[in-house]
Write a protein that binds this DNA or RNA. Structure first.
Length: 266
DNA sequence: AAAATCTGCAACCGCGATGCC
DNA sequence: GGGCATCGCGGTTGCAGATTT
């Protein structure tokens, strides 16, 4: 409320950075670090606002930045992570060493979005054929009510409509039915916080005990599970992936702790 | 060859979260 | 507990180079 814009002061430079500015910024951060971005430009002799300095450092000057084209593996990783996490670019970047959220965001909008959309279309087509050809194709009752959250960009991610609290916009018990680029569909459920309520709402939620990890029947009737992991982890979620005609199953676990999350295939 | 259009990317903007006084 | 400062994130913009007409 009434907060002054960070570059309100006249005389602060905007636009592309010059090599000299880069040099000054690097030299200052190497010597003093960046305990206070706001104060940094003055101390470094730069006519920039702190925000601009921070962005330049994080997106371009950091020594561990990896430049150059994205590898196929990186692209696939981004597509898969975006499928699970939505537009949480910083979370995606955290899993791609040397890549920045800005870079990933750019590459998504320029390349991968189209790629993912094309594959999605292809998969939907294949899926339709599959459904038509196999009346007895088993559909979990939850699955039939799930919606394809890629039907529009804003709905592509669980939290796309959320402005902040990651994962929290997904209503309890909601299942997101994702179709991605490897002839699979997966159902990922994201829940944060009130796990009790969620468990209650999920009819077939199994007991997480020793047998849970070996019980193959779970893939038959429970395509999506979630629970509170405890021990500092806020949650985990499992999605099952159905290759081809539903014959081959495997699972991913999405473990989330605070703003960090990790996908573990098993 | 010039103009129009497209593409890629660096940088900016606004807002919510967090921390500090 | 409230207000302010700062940080970090995601959306958007603007520009330069590439491509097409």
């Amino acid at each position: 409320m009434g907060r002054a814009p960070c570059c309100e002061k006249m005389g602060l430079k905007k636009g592309p950075w010059t090599p000299e500015e880069d040099r000054l910024l690097i030299a200052h951060i190497k010597k003093h670090g960046h305990p206070n971005w706001r104060a940094l430009p003055k101390l470094a002799g730069l006519l920039r606002c702190g925000k601009s300095c921070r962005l330049r450092w994080i997106n371009y000057l950091r020594p561990d930045i990896k430049r150059g084209n994205f590898s196929k593996e990186e692209e696939e990783t981004i597509i898969n992570l975006h499928d699970m996490l939505g537009n949480r670019w910083s979370a995606i970047a955290a899993r791609l060493p040397g890549r920045t959220d800005n870079e990933i965001k750019n590459v998504w909008h320029t390349h991968l979005k189209k790629k993912a959309a094309a594959v999605l279309k292809q998969n939907q087509k294949a899926n339709n054929n599959n459904n038509n050809n196999s009346d007895d194709h088993k559909q979990n009752s939850k699955t039939t009510t799930a919606h394809d959250h890629r039907s529009s960009e804003s709905a592509m991610s669980p939290q796309a409509s959320s402005s902040g609290d990651e994962l929290s916009s997904v209503t309890t018990g909601e299942i997101n039915n994702n179709y991605n680029n490897s002839d699979q569909y997966c159902m990922d459920k994201y829940v944060k916080g009130d796990h009790e309520q969620n468990v209650d709402s999920f009819e077939s939620f199994p007991v997480i005990d020793e047998s849970f990890w070996t019980d193959t029947s779970l893939s038959e009737n429970s395509s999506n599970l979630t629970s509170d992991f405890g021990g500092g982890l806020n949650e985990f979620a499992i999605g099952h992936h159905d290759y081809g005609g539903g014959m081959d199953f495997w699972y991913n676990i999405l473990v989330t702790s605070g703003t960090d999350s990790l996908t573990l295939p098993f």
